[in-house]
Design a protein around this nucleic acid. Sequence first.
DNA 1: GTGGTCTAGACCACT
DNA 2: GTGGTCTAGACCACC
Lengths: 125, 125, 125, 125
Amino acid sequence: MFELDVRSRKPIYEQLVEKLKQLIINDVLKEDEKLPSVRELAQQLTINPNTIQKAYRELESQGYIYSLKGKGSFVHPSGKVDNEEELKKVREELKKLFSEAIYLGMTSEEIAALLHEVEGGQQDD
Amino acid sequence: MFELDVRSRKPIYEQLVEKLKQLIINDVLKEDEKLPSVRELAQQLTINPNTIQKAYRELESQGYIYSLKGKGSFVHPSGKVDNEEELKKVREELKKLFSEAIYLGMTSEEIAALLHEVEGGQQDD
Amino acid sequence: MFELDVRSRKPIYEQLVEKLKQLIINDVLKEDEKLPSVRELAQQLTINPNTIQKAYRELESQGYIYSLKGKGSFVHPSGKVDNEEELKKVREELKKLFSEAIYLGMTSEEIAALLHEVEGGQQDD
Amino acid sequence: MFELDVRSRKPIYEQLVEKLKQLIINDVLKEDEKLPSVRELAQQLTINPNTIQKAYRELESQGYIYSLKGKGSFVHPSGKVDNEEELKKVREELKKLFSEAIYLGMTSEEIAALLHEVEGGQQDD
DNA sequence: GTGGTCTAGACCACT
DNA sequence: GTGGTCTAGACCACC
């Protein structure tokens, strides 16, 4: 399903969160689709189930998925994502990254090009 | 000078690195300007000097400052920052953030507006 | 495993970095092989664990090893070492050393012989 | 006469030692030629005289110069340099650098080319 | 007085 | 049990 870089200094559960977020964002995992079970995914990735558990908990608290006891975890419909807090974080991050990119020599045209490249490849809901 | 969150999961020295990077990028700390001494900053922030030094050392290895025994630490002239590796990381980060921002409902116009806001406020060397 | 000179003006952690680099370069420590744990090595060498960690951290930032929380530190596969910057430094060092060697009376034949001696003893990946 | 990089993490007196060594090796400073006086050089480079003093002391102990009380410091005739100890160090350094260069991807041909380049540009006594 | 190194010892996060 | 962070406090090298 996806690759984790065990060599990264980033904790595995964080990598999992990011990867799953990307899958949801890019509509590979559709609204209300069931995610693989903790045990299943743990076996597939040969990773400790606790680590998967932690990633799912994080995704839930960020509003990307919801869990039903005894049934599993599911993708949260995007329109309903509780996003105010997340949006604020993203805006702050963007501002920080923009100034860093410019400092390192990128022009705003290059940055905008990158934006439109991403925009083009993404499915809107 | 700035606020640190000692309770954050993010290590203090990393917060320091980020804050100082921002000050350098936004030209608050100018080329070859002296940073506060390790001990001085430690006292100001009521933090252990070793922690400050760890941050300074990281900034040095990333090319943002240089340190002279017996003299102090200084802002590295921006033209000489080794940036190829850093730039690659920044580009990846931007792409990830763009897709996340769009997913959370931002339009590319809003993002572009944010970019130009940052661009306007930044002093070129 | 190796000898350190605690009396040297060269810091212990730098001596450690050099020794470990040599072991990696000469393929004594193979790709993805686990290095001794920080505490283990500290005990073996009767040196403070923090000092070992400083060395490991430096090796990591230079691309020679990677560290995983809770698992240990491992040799980075050589193909992936970021080497452009390092190579530049090495070339400068070589030129300086060559001129010094010649000044002290070595012939270029003697130097070349030394080179081939090293070359013969080294395992390529 | 020469440039010192105040931004280098290498102590200034060590930079001085290296620069002067290079001048002697490349025959810019000839046998028995008088070096600039400590005070003179200190003023030229706007550097503390103690720092110059320390560099001269180091060069003397390595056999590159000799000092006459009240007269100044002079270049040691190269044939008479006490070089056994230095040579041993240089050989060790060369071996270490060779293996590092090969590890980073240089071929022995490239290294040899570098050697002959240096050899060609150097004046033998 | 400045940065840099080292120790001893505590506590946390991850697996 | 592993690496990572942080503190407190000592000592050194450089200018």
